[in-house]
């Protein structure tokens, strides 16, 4: 078995299994802690608050927009860019079609893929530069924040190198990094990709029950 076959085959299966099982374990673990039932007479709906809380925090409030512009541009650029690259890159669609899903969908044209890559890279770099230069972010950041950023950066960079499909070794490097990323994800702060809905939802529910839209 070649190294490429190994990282795309058994190692990928293992990494994907760890990703799914550990992420589920962590999410269920958080929910299972539970919370005491609120018996105060409600002024609004907790369920509606849960949904509203999730939607509301997608949109930054105008008064803070100027002060948080770097996060706003970098954050949206990176996250949306990464989402588009992962799910609309032609090689990703082919990989998912052949290995997992058995169906495909239209991919981005090459120029759009490159443009999206540039946006995603710029966003990620902006956020990381902010992390090492802003006194607030420097104080509150830890190793996990940096490992998560660098690992994601390396996955994206190796993906760009593998784009031409010129050498198997470049594709294998990309896949190895993807496998490491998948294994690291559920044990790290990268899990915010899933935990955000719990956090926004729980505070939305708490305030929503009190008739407050925060």
């Amino acid at each position: 078995m070649s190294f490429l076959n190994f990282v795309e085959g058994p190692l990928f299966t293992f990494a994907a299994a760890v990703f799914v099982l550990a992420a589920l374990w962590r999410l269920i673990g958080i929910i299972r802690i539970g919370r005491t039932k609120d018996i105060s007479p409600p002024k609004g709906s907790a369920a509606v608050g849960f949904i509203k809380g999730n939607l509301r925090h997608f949109i930054p409030r105008g008064i803070f927009a100027k002060r948080t512009m770097v996060h706003l541009v970098g954050g949206y650029g990176f996250h949306l860019g990464l989402f588009v690259l992962v799910f609309f890159g032609v090689y990703h669609i082919d990989f998912l079609n052949e290995r997992i899903l058995g169906f495909s969908w239209p991919a981005l044209p090459r120029w759009a893929f490159l443009l999206t890559s540039a946006i995603a890279f710029s966003g990620l770099i902006m956020l990381w530069v902010r992390r090492i230069s802003d006194p607030v972010m420097r104080l509150i950041s830890d190793k996990d924040d940096h490992i998560g950023s660098w690992l994601t950066f390396l996955v994206m960079l190796s993906g760009c190198f593998a784009l031409e499909q010129a050498h198997d070794s470049l594709r294998a490097t990309h896949m190895l990094l993807v496998d490491i990323w998948l294994i690291y994800f559920p044990f790290s702060r990268l899990m915010h990709g899933f935990t955000f809905f719990l956090s926004r939802g729980q505070s939305g529910a708490t305030y929503g029950r009190k008739g407050i839209d925060l």
């Binding site: 802690i33 803070f64 729980q202 505070s203």
Partner: peptide, 17 residues
């Protein structure tokens, strides 16, 4: 630390906003 506080600790990305 109930599931609400836990979800906050689990979701914070140290963005400092």
């Amino acid at each position: 630390t109930d599931s609400e506080a836990a979800s906050f600790f689990e979701a914070c990305v140290h963005c400092g906003i």
